[in-house]
């Protein structure tokens, strides 16, 4: 044995490596979104692909042009995922120039200005959605009934000239019907997705299947969606028992953007707490806000605002739920 090999080998941590890269996680999530996209095409036609594609184009270009890493920053796939998620939260009849603007605003205001991936406080896709909602409140709440056109026909508003307004016929979402007309939608259509709504928020079964896939792949923290769904169901069961006019809990869970938000948005690893207890609290907070907004707020839907508000709270939650160092700190309540 040569003398060299007897030397003490000093290397720096980390010593274990996980094959789970950011790109791999993003790929899993994108894969789980494919069936959602197919469902959107099934119900709303080819326009679904156009809207999602345009939003993605806006997100990717903005990340490449303004992002610190330029085109190389696209390799982790996070900008693509942001664009796809944003596209799926948009109404099917949205003009394409707005979808593009949403992608630009989502990445620009939601990610790049904070310093890029990992530094953003808010979910970039939802920032883009919130920007569009604040800028064009009427267009963003103009819904198209599923199956109202053929597979390849486009709503008249899709190809609107940029900056100009086009009138569109609006159908009501199940939550809008429940809130403003007092009409409840059966669980059946909610599960299959044959209802008006955003592109990706229609079929509960497909969204839950995607969630199951992500859980099996361990691509996300299952506690967050579990906490959101359970808390919403329990709170709404209690609320609808006290105030009989409110929607039943099963409708609350399966309608609107709750499942899409719970499974794909709230679980964004950057803007949600990493501690297990923090994840439960985070989800419960989102669910509480959703129940409050949907039942008593001015809008029929509140998942987006609920998630954004809890995004802002997640550093606090994270700090409050740090695990106790064994033998050092005293036990605290949280």
């Amino acid at each position: 044995m040569s003398s060299e090999n007897l030397r003490l080998q000093v290397t720096a941590a980390p010593f274990t490596h996980s094959p789970r890269t950011t790109a791999a996680v993003m790929r899993d999530v994108s894969l789980a979104l494919l069936p959602v996209l197919f469902a959107a095409v099934w119900y709303f036609g080819i326009v679904a692909i156009l809207v999602v594609g345009t939003a993605t184009l806006g997100a990717v270009l903005t990340d490449a042009v303004l992002g610190r890493q330029g085109w190389a920053g696209l390799k982790d796939g996070s900008a693509i995922l942001t664009g796809v998620l944003l596209g799926l939260t948009l109404p099917p009849g949205i003009p394409l120039w707005m979808a593009l603007l949403g992608g630009v605003a989502g990445i620009g205001l939601g990610k790049v200005v904070w310093g890029g991936l990992g530094h953003n406080i808010f979910n970039p896709a939802l920032v883009g959605r919130a920007f569009l909602q604040a800028a064009f409140p009427i267009t963003l709440t103009t819904w198209v009934a599923p199956g109202s056109g053929s597979l390849v026909s486009l709503p008249a508003s899709t190809l609107a000239v940029p900056l100009l307004h086009v009138d569109a016929v609006s159908a009501a979402t199940p939550l809008g019907l429940a809130k403003f007309q007092g009409t409840l939608t059966a669980v059946g259509p909610l599960l299959t997705g044959n209802v008006a709504g955003s592109l990706g928020e229609t079929s509960a079964i497909i969204l839950l299947a995607g969630g199951a896939y992500l859980m099996w792949r361990r691509a996300f923290d299952w506690r967050i969606p579990a906490s959101i769904i359970l808390t919403t169901a329990v709170l709404q069961a209690v609320a609808s028992a006290i105030w009989p006019g409110l929607a039943p809990p099963q409708m609350m869970v399966f309608s609107g953007g709750l499942l899409l938000g719970a499974i794909y948005m709230a679980t964004d690893p950057v803007s949600s707490p990493t501690t297990p207890r923090g994840a439960w609290i985070f989800g419960a907070g989102i669910a509480t806000l959703v129940v409050l907004i949907r039942n008593w707020g001015g809008l029929p839907e509140g998942v987006m605002y609920a998630i954004l508000l809890m995004n802002a709270a997640s550093p606090l939650i994270e700090r409050a739920t740090q695990p106790r160092v064994f033998g050092r700190d005293k036990r605290r309540l949280l």
């Binding site: 003009p95 205001l109 920007f131 604040a134 800028a135 064009f136 409140p137 267009t139 609107a160 900056l163 100009l164 307004h165 086009v166």
Partner: peptide, 20 residues
């Protein structure tokens, strides 16, 4: 500037638009 069919970005005349 853009004729009667302009789709206004409502957010821009609201406080958030000022901050943005």
């Amino acid at each position: 500037l853009f004729g009667p069919n302009y789709e206004p970005w409502v957010v821009m005349i609201l406080p958030p638009g000022g901050f943005i």
